[in-house]
């Protein structure tokens, strides 16, 4: 009578015509989707952050104070140690046989 329903059936993808799947592997597909999207998201997020941090970072003003006080080294070692104040290292003879002790204060 009306040929339209047959035409419509031909247009529906086979998956939708027969929605019942005997071996759908839903869990596996979900797992795969999670693995792919998580990898892509993590990769993109890291890459985007790497790319977007173009401007020099604010180091909290430490470098401004370094300059203002004309400090020679950051405060990473205790005051008085040669690492903290490299200009105070005594101009003595280089003791070559003390290899490995050069970092001792």
């Amino acid at each position: 009578m009306n040929p339209e329903p047959r035409t419509l059936t031909m247009q529906i993808p086979p998956e939708e015509r027969n929605p019942r799947q005997p071996a759908p592997c839903h869990g596996a597909r979900r797992l795969l989707m999670v693995a792919v999207s998580a990898s892509v998201l993590l990769g993109l997020a890291t890459a985007a952050d790497l790319l977007l941090r173009v401007a020099p970072q604010d180091d909290g003003g430490a470098s401004i104070w370094m300059k203002a006080m004309t400090l020679s080294a950051p405060a990473l070692w205790t005051a008085g140690s040669p690492q903290r104040h490299p200009e105070t290292v005594h101009p003595g003879v280089d003791l070559r046989f003390s290899a490995g002790l050069m970092t001792a204060p």
Binding site: D59, G60, G61, A62, S63, I64, W65, M66, M69, L71, P74, A75, L76, T78, A79, R84
Partner: peptide, 15 residues
């Protein structure tokens, strides 16, 4: 007191 975020330069300073 000097700000905490300047600590890398000012941690042990007395100005």
């Amino acid at each position: 007191i000097l700000p905490a975020d300047t600590g890398l330069a000012t941690h042990d300073l007395v100005w």
